[in-house]
């Protein structure tokens, strides 16, 4: 039997949802970013356990720290959004799925924005 799919659709390779391998690829790209950034963050955060507010602000305000921390929170919330989306897709169905999918997108976006503004406020007022 001949191929029923339109050859153009097959060449584009986007599938029924029209986004192809975008989600899968973005999850890997953010994973590699986090694999590079997370060890730095773990050591950075471990060094600030029990520190007072002034010490924490001074540490975050250092240009390289502020930059790496900004990169880390963006990659972290991006990766979290993609991963939580898959978990909800797999286990939760019906109207709860829709509510949670929206909640995850909004909460992760807000988490990243709050973090970035906080880093900016610390870095620019130090």
């Amino acid at each position: 039997m001949s191929e029923l799919r339109n050859p153009l659709a097959r060449a584009k390779g986007l599938g029924a949802a029209k986004d192809g391998v975008n989600h899968w690829w973005a999850q890997r790209v953010s994973a590699i970013a986090l694999a590079l950034l997370a060890p730095w963050f773990a050591v950075f955060a471990a060094g600030l356990i029990g520190a007072d507010g002034e010490t924490v602000r001074a540490a975050i305000a250092r240009p390289w720290c502020a930059s790496l921390l900004a990169a880390f929170v963006v990659a972290l919330f991006w990766h979290a959004r993609l991963g939580l989306q898959v978990v909800v897709e797999d286990y939760i169905h019906g109207w709860m799925e829709l509510v949670l999918q929206l909640l995850i997108k909004f909460a992760c976006a807000l988490g990243a924005i709050v973090s970035l503004l906080a880093i900016g406020r610390i870095a620019f007022t130090a």
Partner: peptide, 26 residues
């Protein structure tokens, strides 16, 4: 992964509290 995602909001809280300082950080 789900646990870390929840922890990410803790990180956002930490950064927000640090930027506000004072009572918020306390």
């Amino acid at each position: 992964g789900v646990l870390i995602a929840l922890g990410a909001f803790g990180l956002a809280w930490w950064l927000l509290a640090a930027s506000l300082g004072g009572e918020a950080y306390a």
